[in-house]
């Protein structure tokens, strides 16, 4: 991972955290992870996954685990879906986001239940819907900006 790539991801995380401040309950950083998966850079994806995991788990209020499960679901969905779709296909990203939205609801509910926490399910449901809706445009924007900034060295 060269310096410009590192700087790009640092800027992405910086912008993503600020964006998340205005979108409570929504993960916009997952779009970067999806782009990284599409680039098939395993080393980069590993470190990005680790950093995003720490950021989301650290800022959250649940015990460690639900984000790990969620990002795990993304990796599994991506690798399974790649057998059927082109990784950069918009339909694939939309299907992936729907699956991730459902997983967000289920995993958060499951972890809250395991911790015996009461959380408002209607709000969680709406946030999961918003999460599913947010991933395709966030992915497109991340993809677009990364391609503009980094050139063709990082084709998706």
């Amino acid at each position: 991972m060269n310096f410009s790539n590192l700087a790009w991801w640092a800027c992405f995380i910086f912008a993503g955290v600020w964006l998340q401040q205005g979108l409570p309950g929504i993960d916009v950083l997952v779009a970067g992870l999806l782009v990284s998966l599409q680039e098939r850079r395993h080393y980069q994806t590993f470190w990005l996954l680790l950093v995003l995991l720490l950021v989301q788990e650290g800022a959250g209020t649940l015990a460690f685990g639900s984000t790990a499960l969620w990002y795990g679901a993304l990796v599994v969905f991506f690798n399974v879906g790649r057998w059927l779709f082109e990784a950069e296909n918009l339909a694939f990203v939309v299907l992936l986001s729907l699956g991730l939205g459902a997983c967000h609801f289920l995993f958060t509910l499951m972890m809250a239940s395991l911790q015996q926490l009461d959380i408002p399910q209607d709000r969680l449901f709406m946030e999961s819907v918003w999460q599913a809706c947010a991933i395709p445009p966030a992915w497109w924007l991340t993809h677009f900006v990364r391609r503009r900034c980094m050139g063709d060295a990082h084709p998706v």
Partner: peptide, 15 residues
């Protein structure tokens, strides 16, 4: 510095 932040912020919270 922030209110509920991130997908894991299931509880009513602030940072």
């Amino acid at each position: 510095v922030a209110n509920r932040l991130g997908p894991q912020a299931a509880l009513e919270s602030a940072i």
